[in-house]
């Protein structure tokens, strides 16, 4: 379990992180989202003990990052947003170097390095110079390095940034597997669809302040409005009036005259009432599909104004 206790970090007069408090259960996958400069990387660097809090503390499995950073580091695998390379090193030598730094015995090293390369799908690139790896391969190698000492907690800063779609999918598959192994994972990313797919919890930051921390399910439930895509078999302009009586606004899509986007309440009961009303008005509904962009909507709602910060429930 990881507990942030009123953690703040300031650089002079700049408050990078303000009183972050949350409890992350073991095995959770936590997505950190927020605009640039919102404090995501600061939060991750505080957790990895690379920087110390100005006030507050972080407790990792009962160990304080302030009092005993060395032991916390043993529990954490960190993958930064940039892939730092050493010249003239192959992928195998790269992992071997960090395995040696982790004081791994030679026999253990010779066993774990090939298996780790296989795990991250780089067996064929074992003797390739790290400088010549593609961005996706470098990210996977970096993840392999972070996993060398089998840490309980993984901290990933923008792992999917700059990856092509195939590399993103491969990375996502790998992270799903790590989640299934029970690892606690922190991911900072701007790609909300990836986070929605991977995360169990979401932490939204803005200007260093906590906008929201909750499970993904609760977070998206909090979304006040949801879009429903409705397709008709015959034209029915009355749909706009009928939807309005149920509290939904309907807009005909520009590309398809028989398709409408209805925006309104997220509650299942309201959606059911809307559907009943449409059918009762003899509107020939072909499909009625609530859209799954709830995380993006939640993020936009919560980070758009200060009002939302007050309305959003904090964990």
């Amino acid at each position: 379990m990881i507990e942030f206790r009123s953690v703040s970090k300031s650089y002079g007069k700049t408050h990078a992180l303000v009183s972050l408090s949350c409890v992350i259960p073991r095995g959770a996958t936590v997505g950190l989202i927020g605009p640039n400069g919102s404090g995501k990387t600061t939060a991750l660097r505080l957790l990895t003990t690379l920087i110390t809090p100005s006030s507050g503390d972080i407790i990792v499995d009962g160990i304080s990052v302030c009092a005993d950073p060395t032991h916390v580091r043993q529990r954490i695998g960190y993958m930064p947003d940039t892939f730092g390379v050493y010249e003239s090193m192959t992928a195998t030598e790269y992992l071997d170097f960090y395995a040696r730094c982790g004081t791994m015995a030679p026999a253990q090293r010779s066993a774990i390095i090939p298996s780790m390369l296989a795990r991250v799908g780089l067996s064929d690139a074992a003797q390739t110079a790290v400088m010549s790896l593609s961005r996706g391969m470098a990210q996977r190698l970096s993840l392999g390095r972070a996993l060398l000492h089998n840490p309980d907690i993984l901290v990933l800063d923008e792992p999917a940034s700059g990856l092509d779609p195939r590399a993103r999918i491969e990375l996502r598959t790998l992270l799903h597997a790590l989640h299934d192994e029970g690892k606690t994972i922190f991911i900072s990313s701007h790609i909300l669809s990836d986070l929605a797919d991977l995360c169990t919890h979401m932490l939204i930051l803005e200007h260093g302040k906590t906008v929201a921390y909750d499970t993904l399910a609760n977070m998206t439930r909090f979304t006040q409005q949801q879009s429903i895509s409705v397709a008709l078999t015959h034209p029915a302009p009355t749909i706009i009036d009928v939807a309005a009586t149920c509290g939904y606004s309907a807009h005909q899509t520009a590309t398809d005259l028989l398709r409408y986007d209805l925006t309104g309440s997220t509650h299942a009961a309201d959606r059911a009432a809307l559907l009943r009303a449409l059918l009762a008005a003899d509107i020939a509904v072909h499909t009625f599909a609530p859209q799954e962009a709830a995380l993006e909507q939640a993020f936009l709602q919560m980070t758009s104004t200060d009002q939302h910060m007050q309305e959003t429930p904090h964990a």
Binding site: Q74, I76, Y78, G84, V85, Y86, Y98, C101
Partner: peptide, 16 residues
């Protein structure tokens, strides 16, 4: 140089 190459954090976080 490690800082410039952005490898310093990774070394610091090892058990060295």
């Amino acid at each position: 140089g490690e800082r410039e190459r952005q490898t310093f954090d990774l070394i610091v976080l090892t058990q060295l």
